[in-house]
Design a binder for these strands. Structure first.
Length: 206
DNA sequence: AGCACGATTAACT
DNA sequence: GTTAATCGTGCTC
């Protein structure tokens, strides 16, 4: 089966639609031809200069420049003095909007991820935005990376979409000092944890 | 040049 | 539930 990278057209649409459809898709990181990948199970939308939770509320700066660029690129930033965060730039060029990838379910290259997430059990390899970047070796070198360039080392492949009924929506995480309504606006999307299963079985399966 | 704070994590009580 | 770790960013002198 031939799997294709999601085209720029996919990212060049209203952000909430893109976030919703990203669930289940496969994030792929290539390192010397080695594939590290996982299905996206949680993501959040950050949209426009009015959104006080979005870095672009400062306007265009050296850091947020990528968010104003064309869709389908990676916006990778550093925070809390130690963690990298991976985002996808979406919507039209000139308008700042990005999707934070918060959690993936590891599929390929899990031995390498396990080594980088030393001491952590599988369920904690990639269940946070900083953890994903640690497991997949994503840092400032990938900021601005074109996800739609056939030669790029970071991209998204089509995989089985997640049914609407399996998606839960809620407020974004970690915006402690952001004023309302932005603090509570329901722009966080995640694949619902299946009930009646223990944590170690509550994962996406084919 | 200095400052406050952050789209977090891991370890602890 | 609480907290230390740690430094880039954008703002104010």
């Amino acid at each position: 089966m031939t799997v294709e990278r999601l085209p720029r057209q996919f990212f060049n649409r209203p952000i909430l639609q893109v976030v919703r459809e990203l669930l289940g898709m496969r994030l792929v990181r290539l390192e010397d031809g080695q594939r590290l990948s996982g299905r996206i199970i949680e993501a959040e939308a950050y949209r426009g200069e009015e959104d006080l939770g979005c870095h672009a509320y400062h306007g265009r700066t050296a850091r947020t420049q990528v968010m104003y660029g064309p869709p389908g690129h990676a916006y990778v930033y550093f925070t809390y003095g130690m963690h990298w965060m991976l985002n996808f730039v979406v919507e039209a060029e000139g308008f700042p909007a990005a999707i934070l990838i918060r959690a993936i379910h590891a599929v390929e290259g899990t031995d390498i991820m396990a080594a980088r997430r030393a001491g952590q059990p599988p369920q904690h390899w990639t269940d946070g935005p900083g953890k994903i970047c640690q497991a997949l070796n994503i840092d400032r070198k990938l900021n601005g990376c074109d996800l739609c360039d056939p030669a790029s080392e970071l991209f998204v492949e089509f995989d089985e979409p997640v049914p609407e009924a399996s998606t839960t929506i809620g407020p974004r995480v970690g915006l402690y000092s952001v004023p309302e309504p932005w603090k509570s606006i329901p722009w966080r999307f995640r694949v619902e944890t299946k009930p009646f299963l223990t944590t170690e079985h509550a994962e996406i399966t084919e």
